[in-house]
């Protein structure tokens, strides 16, 4: 009933078995390689995400500093024009545009007049506070002589 034993049949079986074993080994190697690549990619993506997060944080900080500097400088120049306008509070959005309601930036100008014998030195402190907790201070002064027009 069984197939007759022939040398050709044994050789074919061996070749098939060897091929099957090699294929299984290749598949195992491929799976191991894929797992290694997956781990490598996961590791790299984690590092890259950290770098991008740090970049975003630095950029936000730079934008805030730049915007605060601009707002404080504008307010200091307004103070130089009219130093007798005392303390005031202004609001600005994240890009530095004026806002009527409390927004991202809150600018507070505090003016302290110092009376001298012949005039007044107005000391101003411009304080900026963002909702993120960023603060910026700028101090300036303006002198006005008593009863005299200053000419440039």
């Amino acid at each position: 009933m069984s197939a007759p034993f022939t040398p050709e049949r044994t050789s074919a079986d061996n070749r098939f078995q060897r091929r099957h074993q090699r294929k299984a080994a290749d598949e195992r190697a491929l799976i191991i390689e894929m797992i290694a690549v997956l781990f490598f990619v996961a590791l790299c993506v984690a590092v890259v995400i950290q770098l991008f997060a740090q970049s975003a944080s630095d950029c936000r900080s730079a934008h805030d500093t730049s915007c605060a500097t601009r707002l404080a400088r504008c307010d200091a120049e307004q103070f130089n024009v009219s130093p007798d306008i005392t303390t005031g509070v202004s609001y600005f959005d994240v890009d530095g545009n004026p806002s009527d309601t409390p927004s991202y930036w809150t600018l507070t100008r505090t003016v302290t007049p110092e009376q001298t014998e012949v005039g007044t030195i107005y000391h101003a402190t411009v304080h900026l506070l963002s909702t993120q907790g960023t603060t910026y201070d700028l101090s300036t002064a303006c002198y006005k002589s008593n009863g005299e027009e200053e000419t440039l």
């Binding site: 770098l51 740090q54 970049s55 630095d58 950029c59 730079a62 730049s66 500097t69």
Partner: peptide, 27 residues
């Protein structure tokens, strides 16, 4: 991706340093 991330970080750091220098100059 790594090169892009490093360039992005360098640019951001540069912008932050420039903004701080501007702040110091104004003060």
């Amino acid at each position: 991706l790594a090169v892009l991330a490093v360039l992005s970080l360098t640019y951001a750091h540069d912008a932050s340093t420039a903004a701080q220098r501007q702040r110091d100059t104004v003060v």
